[in-house]
Simulated assay, not measured.
Amino acid sequence: MLEGLPPNGATHVMRVDAPEHEARAIAEFLGETFDPAEVATAAFEVEDRAEGSGWAVEVYFGEAPDEDGVRELIALVSPQAAAAAVFLLLDKKDWVSASLEGLAPVAIGRFVVHGSHDRGRLAPGQIGIEIEAALAFGTGHHGTTKGCLAAIVAYGKQRRPGRTLDIGTGTGVLAMAAARLFHAPVLASDIDKVAVTTAQANAVANHAAPHIRFLHAPGLGAGEFVRQGPYDLILANILLPPLKAIARPLSRLLAPGGTVVLSGLLPSHANAALAAYRAQGLRLKRRRTIEGWTTLELAADRGRNATPAGTR
C-alpha cells in the first residue's frame, strides 16, 4: 500500500475536517510539498452517525512537523481549514484505530472494505474484506487503494489471471481482493516485516490465506518472484520513485498479454511513471483518478516474452 510512515514508534498526525473539494485540494497540495518518503497524506470521506457524511484530511509525519508552517501551507488552500487543523502524537496502533472509527465501508464493484462494526451490512453477492486496526498502512479508504480495486474489478470482467503479484501489499487488501475474486494464486510482498505479519493475519481472518503466499522482500531481487511467475496481473500501489526503480524487473515478471496496475501516484507524477513502463514495452490501457490520486492500467502485448517461471 501507500508507503511513507515510519516502521516503528510514534507517529505525528495532523487532521482537519473540510468540505470535499477543499479536503482533496489540501491533500494533493501537501502531498506535492513534502517528501513522500517521510510524509503520507490522505483525504477521505467520514461518516458521522449524527450529522451525516463529511470529508477529512490526515497527514502522518515521521518526525514532529513545524505546525505553524503546515498551517501556513493549508491556508494557501483554505484559511478556515488552517485554523481548524489539529496536531496529535499517537502510537501507530492508535492512529489506525482512530482513522477507522466512523469510516464508512468502501464499495468498489463487488468489493466492500469494512470494519467489524459493518460486517452485518454486506448484501448478497458482495465480497467483504474486513480490515481492523493494524500496524500497516492501508485500510481501503485511500484513493490509491480504491483505484486499484476498481482496476481489479475491470480486469475480472475480461478474464481470470493464472497468477497475481501484489507489490507493497501493506494490510493485504489488494492481495485478498484478487484471491477472493479469482480463487487463483497470489504472491504478496512488502519491504516492512510488520506489514507482512499484518497482511498474513488479515488473510486468515478473511478466508483468503489458502491462495496467498506472503514474502518479506525489498524490491524485486528475491528469487521467489521469478519462481512463482510469470504473472498475468501485477499490482504495485507504492509511490513514483520506487515504481520507476522497479520498472524493468517488474516488466520482466509479466506474462505475455498481462496487465500491470500502478498507483500511489499524484496526477502530476503519472506521466513520469507511464514513461518508465512504456520504455519496457507496455502500453496504457486506462488512467483513472480518484480523490486526487491516479491509477494506471498498462498491458503487455501477447507476443512479448516474459521471464520464464522457475520450479513451482
Rank of each mutant, 00 (worst) to 15 (best):
R180L: 15
A276P: 04
Y155N: 09
A179L: 12
D66K: 10
M176S: 12
A151V: 02
D35I: 04
G9E: 09
G292M: 04
R312S: 11
Q126D: 10
A10L: 12
A98M: 08
Q228L: 13
L253C: 10
G156D: 06
H12L: 01
C148S: 12
T307G: 04
F29R: 14
F225V: 12
I108G: 05
Q158S: 09
D301A: 15
L100I: 07
F87E: 07
L220V: 11
F111K: 07
S53N: 13
N8L: 11
E132G: 15
G54T: 10
E51I: 04
V261F: 07
L135H: 05
K157W: 01
G52W: 11
D48W: 01
V59F: 04
V77D: 05
G162F: 11
A175F: 03
K285P: 00
A107Q: 13
H211P: 00
T164F: 05
V106G: 02
G4I: 02
V260D: 07
E132C: 09
R160T: 15
A177R: 01
L73V: 04
T139A: 05
A273V: 03
K157C: 00
E63C: 00
T198D: 13
G162L: 14
D190T: 09
A123K: 15
A217L: 10
V77Q: 13
A25V: 02
V13F: 02
D166K: 04
G229A: 12
L88H: 13
D232G: 15
I238S: 02
L88E: 15
W293V: 06
L165R: 03
A299W: 03
R71Q: 11
R119F: 09
Y231C: 05
H21G: 01
S99W: 03
P105S: 11
K157V: 00
G115R: 10
L250V: 07
S97W: 04
P124I: 08
L100W: 01
H207D: 15
D192I: 02
E22S: 11
D17G: 12
P230I: 01
Q228D: 08
A75D: 11
T197K: 11
F137H: 08
H12C: 05
L282N: 03
P308V: 08
R121E: 13
E51P: 00
L215V: 11
S268L: 03
L296M: 07
T294H: 06
Y231P: 03
E67V: 08
